[in-house]
C-alpha cells in the first residue's frame, strides 16, 4: 500500500472502519453533539475542529434554456485526526472536496485532498469562505459565489437565498440511531442558483434551486449502521422534504425526516414516520428508484434518478445525483446513497 492510500484508509472517512466511512468509530478526545443546541452565527458557519467530521454540502437541480435537467454537487469535508488545529503542516485537520455535474447521460466527478494549516483548504466563518484549491463557496449566506473544476468540467455559480435557515431534528440536534448517535444539522434549502457549466460539449447557462447542508459530529452513526439513503425533495408547490434512512447490519433501518413549508417552518418526524422502500436497481445494484411515504403529510411518491449512473468514484465512493418524483406530489430533488460499494 502506498503512503497516500494509507492516509486515506486512516482518514475517518473511509469504509474500512466501523460503520460507513468510519463514521461509527469511537470518539477519543473529540466533542460530541448535545441536545438543545444554541447556534452562534456566523461563527457556526465556520469549522468546529474539536468535532471529528464536518461538511459543507451543496446540491442543486438545474436546467438550461431548453429545459434539459442537470444536477450539481459541491462538497467540502473536514476530517480531524485530533481535536485541535494549529498553523502549519502539523495541523491534524484534513480536507476533502468533491464536485460533480450530472447530465441525463454523463456524470462528471472531481476530488481534491488537502492538509489543513497551510492555506490550501479551509473555512473562515466571517466573511464566509470555504475553499480547497481553486474551488470555493463564498459570500454572506444571502448572496454567494461558488466554483469548482475537474479535468473535464468546471462551473461558476451565483447563489441567492430567499428563505431562512432550517434546523433539523430537535432544533438542529439530529439523532441518527436508536442508541442516540447524533449530529448538529442545519440547511439552507432556499437558494436560487444560476451560472455556467463548462462541459466537454461546450458551455451551458443554467438556472435552478440549490440546497446547502451543514452538519458536524464526532460519531454520527452507530457501530451497526452501514450506510444511508438521503433525500432532499422540493415539491412544485414550494414545500420541501428532507428524509434519510440509515441502514443497519441487522437489516433494520432508522429513518428521520423534516417537513419544510415554503415559508421555512420546519417540522421534524421521528424514526418510522417516513418510510422508504427501494423499487429498482441500476446495473451496479444501487437502488435508483424509490417509494417514499410520509402518511402524516399525505405523501406517497416514486423517486427516479435522472441519470442512473451518478456514481462518485472518489476515495470514499458513493452515489449522488439529481432525481424527479411523482405520485401524490411532483417535483425534483437530490438523492445520496452510501454503503453500496
Amino acid at each position: 500500500m502506498n503512503a497516500k492510500a494509507f492516509v486515506l484508509c486512516l482518514l475517518p472517512v473511509t469504509a474500512t472502519a466501523q460503520g460507513f466511512a468510519g463514521l461509527g468509530t469511537d470518539v477519543d478526545g473529540f466533542s460530541t453533539p448535545a441536545p438543545n443546541p444554541v447556534f452562534d452565527f456566523p461563527a457556526d458557519h465556520g469549522p468546529h475542529p474539536d468535532y471529528r467530521i464536518e461538511w459543507w454540502y451543496l446540491t442543486a437541480n438545474l436546467e438550461d434554456a431548453d429545459g434539459t435537467p442537470y444536477g450539481l454537487q459541491w462538497t467540502l469535508f473536514r476530517s480531524a485526526l485530533a481535536p485541535y488545529d494549529v498553523e502549519g503542516w502539523q495541523s491534524p485537520q484534513l480536507w476533502m472536496g468533491h464536485a460533480a455535474v450530472t447530465t441525463e447521460t454523463d456524470h462528471f466527478v472531481a476530488e481534491r485532498l488537502a492538509r489543513g494549516g497551510i492555506g490550501q483548504a479551509g473555512v473562515v466563518a466571517d466573511p464566509f469562505n470555504a475553499w480547497i484549491d481553486d474551488w470555493a463557496l463564498e459570500g454572506d449566506w444571502q448572496m454567494m459565489q461558488m466554483r469548482a473544476s475537474g479535468t473535464d468540467f468546471a462551473y461558476q455559480m451565483d447563489l441567492t437565498a430567499n428563505g431562512p435557515l432550517v434546523f433539523h431534528g430537535d432544533g438542529g440536534y439530529s439523532v441518527k440511531s436508536a442508541a442516540g448517535q447524533a449530529s448538529y444539522y442545519y440547511s439552507q434549502p432556499f437558494f436560487d442558483i444560476s451560472g455556467t457549466l463548462q462541459l466537454p460539449t461546450g458551455d451551458v447557462e443554467v438556472t435552478g434551486s440549490a440546497w446547502l447542508d451543514r452538519e458536524w459530529s464526532s460519531q454520527p452513526l452507530a457501530e451497526n449502521q452501514t450506510g444511508w439513503d438521503w433525500f432532499s425533495l422540493s415539491f412544485d408547490d414550494g414545500d420541501k422534504l428532507m428524509g434519510f434512512r440509515l441502514q443497519q447490519d441487522d437489516g433494520m433501518n432508522y429513518t428521520s425526516a423534516t417537513w419544510i413549508t415554503a415559508d421555512g417552518d420546519a417540522t421534524p418526524y421521528p424514526d418510522g414516520a417516513l418510510q422508504v422502500e427501494p423499487l429498482g436497481l441500476n446495473a451496479a445494484d444501487v437502488p435508483v428508484r424509490w417509494r417514499l411515504t410520509l402518511p402524516d403529510r399525505g405523501v406517497d411518491v416514486t423517486v427516479q434518478a435522472i441519470n442512473d449512473d451518478a456514481w462518485m468514484a472518489t476515495s470514499v465512493p458513493y452515489w449522488e445525483g439529481p432525481v424527479t418524483f411523482e405520485g401524490t406530489h411532483q417535483g425534483r430533488g437530490y438523492l445520496e446513497m452510501t454503503g453500496y460499494e
Binding site: 502506498n2 494509507f6 485532498l113 492538509r115
Partner: peptide, 11 residues
C-alpha cells in the same frame, strides 16, 4: 501524502 500522485512513495 495527500497530494502526491497515487502510487508514489514506496512506504
Amino acid at each position: 501524502a495527500l497530494t502526491a500522485p497515487s502510487g508514489m512513495g514506496p512506504v
